[in-house]
Nucleic acid binder design. Structure first.
Lengths: 168, 168
DNA sequence: ATATATTTTCAATAATTTTTGAAATTTCGG
DNA sequence: CCGAAATTTCAAAAATTATTGAAAATATAT
C-alpha cells in the first residue's frame, strides 16, 4: 500500500472510530492528520487535505486545543498560525481520559449523590431498587474515578507492567 | 426529592450520558428504566413510561438484548413478553467493555496491522512519522486489549483491590 | 382454522448535528 | 494608523441520525 492511500485510510477510519466515542468525525480526522504529519500544519493545509470549509476547520481545531490534544505553534517569519498534535500516544490517551473524567464521570457522580438521597420508605420495593441501583453505580463510579486518577499519573508501563504481573 | 422525580432525573441523565458514548438516547433511557424497575416490564410499560413509539421501543430493546444488557423474561400466565436488565453493575460494565472491544478495538487493530506495512523509504520523514504513529497506537492498543481481557475475567475487586496496592 | 393479540419491519418524517461560507473581527507589518 | 492577511463567528443549508406509525408478520388462545 502506498503512503497516500494508507494515510487516507487511517484518517478516515480514525474519523469513523471517533463517532463511536461521541467525537465528531471532522475533529477526529483533523487529529489523525496532525498525528501523521511530521511538521506543523496551517488551517489552509488542513482544509485542503481534508476538503472541509474554513469555518469547520477553525472550530474543530479550537476544540482539539480545548481538549489539550493540539497545540498552536509559532514559526518565526510566518504570519499564519501552525498546529501540531501531541505524538506521544500514551499522553494523548491520558489527556482524553482526564478530560472525559472531568466532563462526564464527575458530574455523573455528583448527580448520583443527590439521587441517592431520595425520600421514601426503603421497604417499598420501588424505592429499594432505585436506591440500590444508584448506590451500586456510584460505588463502581468512585472506584473507576480513583483508578483513572492513578492511570493519569502513571507511566506507560502501567498498562503492560505491574498490572499484568498481579493477575498472571 | 420524591422517587418519581428522582427516577425521571436518572433516566434522563443516563440518556444524555449515553449520547456522549456513542449510544443513542432512547436505548440508554430504556436501560436506565429497566435498571430501576424491580420487576420486568413489557414493551407497553416502557412505551408509556418514556413516551416513545412502539417501533422505537422495539428496536432499542432488541439492541439492548444484542448488547447482552437486557433479557427477555417469560412470565407464566402472561401472553406478552417481559424485559429485565442485569442489575449487577460490574457485570454490565464488563459486558459493555467486551462488546466494544470486539466491535471497535479489534477491527482497529487489524486495520493498523495492514497500515503499518506501508511501502516506502523509512528515511522519508512522511513515511517515518506515519509508521511511527501507527506502531505506537498499535502497541498501546494491544496493551489495552490485553488489559481489558484481564478485566473482563476479573471480579469487581479488580478495581479497588490489588491494583491500588501496586501503586499506593 | 380463525380471530385476536403481540411483535417486527421499514418508508416517511422529524429532530439533531455538522458543515458551509460570507461577514465581522482581530492581528500585524509597514 | 492603514490596509491586507488571518482568524473567528454564526445563521442558513446539508447531512446524518432517530422516531413514528401503520402495515406485515408472527404467535397464541379458543
Amino acid at each position: 500500500m502506498k503512503l497516500t492511500e494508507a494515510r487516507q485510510q487511517f484518517i478516515s477510519s480514525w474519523g469513523a472510530f471517533g463517532t463511536h466515542w461521541g467525537i465528531n468525525r471532522t475533529m477526529a480526522q483533523i487529529h489523525a492528520l496532525l498525528l501523521v504529519s511530521p511538521d506543523p500544519l496551517t488551517q489552509d493545509d488542513i482544509m485542503e487535505e481534508l476538503n472541509i470549509s474554513r469555518g469547520n476547520t477553525n472550530m474543530n481545531i479550537r476544540e482539539l486545543i480545548n481538549w489539550g490534544l493540539v497545540d498552536r505553534v509559532l514559526i518565526t517569519g510566518e504570519r499564519k498560525e501552525f498546529f501540531s498534535a501531541e505524538k506521544d500516544i500514551w499522553k494523548v490517551v491520558k489527556q482524553i481520559v482526564k478530560e472525559r473524567k472531568k466532563r462526564e464521570l464527575e458530574p455523573m457522580l455528583h448527580l448520583l449523590d443527590r439521587l441517592e438521597a431520595v425520600e421514601g420508605d426503603k421497604k417499598d420495593k420501588q424505592v429499594k431498587t432505585f436506591v440500590d441501583t444508584i448506590s451500586s453505580i456510584k460505588k463502581l463510579g468512585r472506584q473507576a474515578d480513583k483508578t483513572l486518577d492513578t492511570m493519569i499519573k502513571a507511566e506507560e508501563s502501567w498498562f503492560v507492567g505491574a498490572l499484568m504481573k498481579v493477575f498472571k
